[in-house]
Write a protein that binds this DNA or RNA. Structure first.
Length: 276
DNA sequence: CAGCGTGTTGAGGA
DNA sequence: TTCCTCAACACGCT
């Protein structure tokens, strides 16, 4: 479930895995659809013999910096997963989509049951001009992300506050699960128009966004694997969700039943009593 | 069999 | 121009 904490967890794990400084010696592509600005031939040629220098995150994008000023930009969308594994390790072939073979008998494997992920290749700095990345806003972990910033972005908007904070051009990195959690902690009804919020509300959203995302990163995200060794070990944060998926359960704050509605087509959970 | 979904884009319409 | 809903992407799960 890649939202910001899951993507950060993956990057932290990969950056500490032994993947860095390895040379890509082969690339196998099983789903061509994932390549958005290249053909398999061009993609492979672009990556072959380059070393992976480091990986950074922008919003929910992973940016792989390679030798010769090359970058690989990956978005996991709904189901994408990246695992650094030994070549010999058992592979559940069903959802294996791309393999990057390295010169140390390891392989970076991309799994994606729904094949929604995206892979773009760019020369260094060109990726910053790429359409999808230029649109990104500040993410909640940046120090300049404040209630004031949020207010300047959306205080004139008639959109539901949940819709506004899911829009990556307003805030980058918040997804459906964390949006519900953040609005619950901020005691704001997800359907309220952004224009009706006070500066205090925006301050709360900024405060809890930082708090909850940091906490989730600390616990390894929600359902993303921990990447230590096996792909089945899941993140621990899902156990700490307060409202998301809690339909019919008592609110941890007031005991009222959590209800589920749709906002902008997305399943939305909230407490009707706490979130006015 | 129908409905849902962690993300995003684009079409069509009010 | 703004903002909403719906569909699409492709598949697994309930």
């Amino acid at each position: 479930m890649p939202e910001l904490p899951e993507v950060q967890t993956i990057i932290n794990t990969l950056n500490n895995s032994g993947l860095l400084q390895q040379r890509i010696i082969d690339v196998k592509i099983y789903k061509v659809k994932l390549l958005k600005n290249s053909t398999p031939l061009i993609f492979k040629k672009f990556l072959l013999n380059e070393k992976i220098i480091n990986i950074e995150r922008k919003g929910k994008f992973l940016i792989f910096h390679l030798t010769h000023q090359k970058t690989l930009v990956v978005h996991l969308r709904m189901e994408g997963k990246l695992f650094y594994e030994t070549i010999k390790s058992f592979v559940p072939k069903a959802h294996l989509r791309i393999e990057f073979f390295l010169n140390n008998k390891h392989v970076l494997r991309y799994y994606d049951s729904r094949i929604f992920g995206t892979f773009h290749i760019y020369k260094e700095h060109q990726h910053l001009k790429a359409h999808q990345l230029t649109k990104l806003a500040l993410d909640p972990l940046e120090s300049t992300f404040t209630g004031k910033y949020l207010s300047s972005k959306i205080s004139n908007s008639n959109q539901a506050i949940k819709t506004a904070i899911l829009d990556q051009t307003n805030v980058s990195g918040i997804g459906n699960i964390y949006a519900d959690e953040i609005l619950f902690l901020s005691k704001i009804n997800p359907t309220r128009k952004a224009s009706t919020l006070t500066i205090k509300d925006f301050n709360n959203i900024a405060k809890y966004a930082k708090k909850i995302l940091l906490k989730s990163i600390k616990y390894g995200g929600t359902t993303i694997a921990s990447y230590k060794s096996d792909a089945n070990h899941t993140g621990q944060f899902q156990k700490m969700l307060l409202v998301h998926t809690k339909k019919g359960k008592p609110c941890v704050c007031c005991g009222s039943k959590i209800i589920k509605i749709k906002v902008n087509g997305r399943g939305t959970y909230y407490c009707p009593r706490c979130q006015k």
